[in-house]
């Protein structure tokens, strides 16, 4: 796909770009994306930004505007929000977790298989950071590198998690419901860098947790405790989806009462009769 976009050097008229972008994105992804390895990974920043611009104009500008100003709906709602000042971290999070581009305009952009590969994401992040004003940079390993984390750090992280995160994401990190059909997603399998980016940038409904209030070390501790919760065995057996008493009640009725009523039917059933006397 990049090869295609490099051939199309001259910026075309906006409408054509949008149309082509849709066609390109929809039709050629499957053929082009898997094989398109980056030939020279060491490009200059300017090259990166330029490449990001191409990708942006093709894939993003139809919703976010050519200058990242966002596009308003006629009724006044946002079609795509402004990207002014969102920074590289936001782009890396949204694109790197597959949330952007959205499959459809809906309440929530769900996590899915990323559309762009790592290099393309990097280019777009560089472009947005360079062109749309400064914002949070992609966080470094001090936010999520778990080497050298002590038991005390994990305990502190657990307390911070329960104070700041569990109301939406659930004590076990399986996520939970928000208003209007939105939801806090499960934290299962979230990469450390994306976890840190979400906390810093506050994507979608999620609030921002700034570094001044929750330091990078605090964030790392939360991440460590989350990994701990997800890795620890479900000591009591099958965890029933960890949704709490609703799942337990369902299991009690279906498995427990179901099995016992089955036994009761067996007890009350007439046993086989002999054909001869």
């Amino acid at each position: 796909m990049r090869q295609l976009s490099t051939h199309r050097r001259h910026p075309l008229a906006g409408v054509l770009v949008l149309l082509l972008g849709l066609v390109v994105a929809g039709g050629l992804y499957a053929a082009a994306a898997p094989g398109s390895a980056r030939a020279d990974s060491a490009g200059t920043d300017a090259d990166l930004v330029a490449e990001g611009r191409e990708l942006y104009l093709t894939g993003c500008s139809s919703c976010h505007g050519q200058n990242g100003q966002g596009i308003l709906q006629r009724e006044g709602g946002q079609y795509g929000p402004s990207l002014i000042g969102v920074g590289a971290a936001a782009v890396d999070f949204q694109v790197g977790t597959g949330r952007m581009p959205m499959a459809q305009n809906s309440q929530q952009a769900p996590r899915k298989e990323p559309f762009y590969d790592a290099a393309e994401t990097e280019a777009m992040a560089a472009f947005v950071a360079a062109e749309f004003g400064p914002g949070p940079a992609i966080p470094g390993p001090e936010y999520y590198d778990l080497a050298g984390v002590s038991d005390e750090d994990i305990t502190e992280g657990r307390e911070l998690y329960l104070a700041n995160c569990s109301a939406c994401h659930n004590a076990a990190g399986i996520g939970g419901a928000l208003g209007g059909g939105r939801y806090a997603p499960t934290l299962e399998g979230v990469e450390g860098v994306h976890f840190a980016e979400a906390m810093i940038t506050g994507p979608q409904s999620m609030p921002v947790f700034s570094d001044e209030v929750l330091t990078p070390e605090d964030k790392r501790n939360i991440y460590a405790s989350l990994r701990e919760i997800q890795a620890e065995p479900a000591s009591g057996g099958f965890d029933l989806g960890r949704v709490g008493p609703v799942g337990e009640g369902l299991a009690g009725w279906v498995a427990g009462i179901g099995a016992l009523v089955g036994f009761a039917v067996w007890i009350g059933k007439h046993s086989v009769r002999a054909s001869k006397q």
């Binding site: 609030p207 921002v208 001044e212 209030v213 929750l214």
Partner: peptide, 18 residues
């Protein structure tokens, strides 16, 4: 701030922050 007990300054709190 809960748990850490750090006092808060306005400039530490960003738009959209909780």
């Amino acid at each position: 701030n809960d748990v850490t007990g750090e006092p808060l300054r306005p400039d530490e709190i960003q738009l959209g922050q909780l």
